[in-house]
Structure formats: C-alpha cells, structure tokens
Design a protein around this nucleic acid. Sequence first.
DNA 1: TTCCTTATTGTAACTTCTTACAATAATAGA
DNA 2: TCTATTATTGTAAGAAGTTACAATAAGGAA
Lengths: 139, 139
Amino acid sequence: MTCAINYAPRLRAQGLRITPQRNAILHVLHHSGGHLSPTQVFEQARKEFPGLTEPTVYRTLEDLAEKKFLLAAHVGNGKIVYELAEKQHHHLICHKCGKTVEVDHAPLDLLYHQFESSTGYKLDSSHVTFFGLCPDCQS
Amino acid sequence: MTCAINYAPRLRAQGLRITPQRNAILHVLHHSGGHLSPTQVFEQARKEFPGLTEPTVYRTLEDLAEKKFLLAAHVGNGKIVYELAEKQHHHLICHKCGKTVEVDHAPLDLLYHQFESSTGYKLDSSHVTFFGLCPDCQS
DNA sequence: TTCCTTATTGTAACTTCTTACAATAATAGA
DNA sequence: TCTATTATTGTAAGAAGTTACAATAAGGAA
Ligand SMILES: [Mn+2]
Ligand SMILES: [Mn+2]
Ligand SMILES: [Zn+2]
Ligand SMILES: [Zn+2]
C-alpha cells in the first residue's frame, strides 16, 4: 500500500503526526518522481484518499517543504511545483518552451558565502530558478 | 498628471500602445518606488482610472515585465511583486520576519557564464530570490 | 479628418488558493 | 486499553488569479 516508503520515523522526529492524508500526498510525490503542481498533487492524492480536501493539500505541501521533506520550486508567474527533496539542486528554465534542466548547487556555494558575509544573512539551502533560452530556442 | 514620466516613446518603440490603463499602472509603480503586489497595483491604479479591471492589471504587469519595463520578483509561496526595472539586482529575504535586502547582480555574473557553458542555455537577466535568516532573526 | 487594422480592454465565468474556526483523530501517558 | 492533549483536518466562505471571446479604441494611412 505504502510501497515501502518509510517517512514515518522522520515525520515523527520532526513532531509531525502520521495521517492518511500525508501518506497519500507523499506517496504521490514519491511515485511521480517529478515536479507536481498543488493541483496535480490534489487530484492524484484524492484517488488514494477520496476525502482529501484542497486546504489540506496546500497546508501539507507547505509544512513538508518547511521541514525539508519536499522542495518547492517556482517556475515563473507565481506558479510553484513540488518534488521530493533529495539532493540540493536548482532549475534552469527556458522561458520559451519551458524545458527545464537541473543544475548542481556546488557552484552557488561561494556566492552564498559572499552574500552571508556582505549582508549578515544566513542563507537557506532553498531552491533557486534561473530563466533563459534553451539551445533549441536560440535560433 | 503623468508627473513627467515619459514611457511613451519606449512603449511605442516596443510596439506597445499607450492607454490610460497602462499609464495608471506605470504611474502607481513609479510613485510607490517599492515592490507592489498585483492586488496593490490594482487598488491604487483604480483610483486613477476607476474603470480598471483585474484581468487588465495582470496582463499589463506581465506584458510590461516581459518588455523589461518592470521586474517581477517572487517572494515565497508563489507570491510575486513588481517594481520598476532600473538596475538589475536580486533579493535576499528573511523567511522569518520577511525583511528584504537587495544585492547586486555582479557577483552572479561568473555563475551565469558557467551555467551557460555547461548547459548551452543563454540566461536572462531575470530576478533571483534567495532566502535565509536576517541578522536580527538568528538568535 | 476619416477609415482601417489590430492591439488592448472588459465581461462573465471559472479555477486556484486562502482564511478562520469548529470537529476530528493521532499520539503520549495513565 | 482508556483518556487527555493538541496537531491536523474539513467546512464554508471568500480572495486572488485565469480564460475565452466579443467590444473598444490607439495609431497608421488615406
Ligand atoms: Mn528539480
Ligand atoms: Mn527590488
Ligand atoms: Zn526552449
Ligand atoms: Zn528576520
């Protein structure tokens, strides 16, 4: 049923309770593998748990992202998508065709340190989106 | 009335027509100086042009941002704010208190070049938001 | 000026997202 | 197992943002 995903201990370690709603949502994101919008999560998770409602989905996605189970990435015009937080990475999106590539965080590390010393802020490992034109769309 | 703002020639140069709706919207952003949400733009611009409607505001903000008159910055959870596009810069936002500092683009330039050569994408001068904890919120 | 073209707008309906609060149910402890 | 605590949820209503399309009006040409 829950396809051997064991988020339970990590959830409990964060003080989060294990509910069928959360299971359904994590399950959907786990299986899709990719980036899902809140609406997509809602529609798919509702199949596994028919009573599920929208406020629960939005709240859960935010909570799980805050606790680092999920990664929230904005994809332009205020749209955001979620994915399972595995390795830290960032997105590079073609503003013409939408094609997205994932880039490693490493090259940003130096920059983060510069910002930290120049501003006094302590930066998160939060996701960043860069926009541009993919190779195919440059002609 | 239009407080000596002369967007007209630049607008026309981009093939955009000059309408009272656009004037009102640009006027509001010009005077506020800061970052405004679409709702704030709508409410304030409506005072100058009472017939103004929401779809027009959203469309106009997107169009003006695409043509580089405005800069669209996301501020977390899919919220975006607009400001006049003057110098290219980025934002560093405290995820606890919301305090925002603007940082220069220069230190990102090298990174952009690295990404361009490693991915083949040609990057935009689009806005990036970084999140963290401001000095006051670190204790 | 007048007419023509077409970018821009408003309308109406809809979808997505948010809020406040009362009801529920997951956990810890007896 | 039962009970108490309180995190989590659903409800109901509303706000924010989107869509498709017909009506309007800005700007160029006659
Ligand atoms: Mn990704
Ligand atoms: Mn700014
Ligand atoms: Zn492309
Ligand atoms: Zn702060």
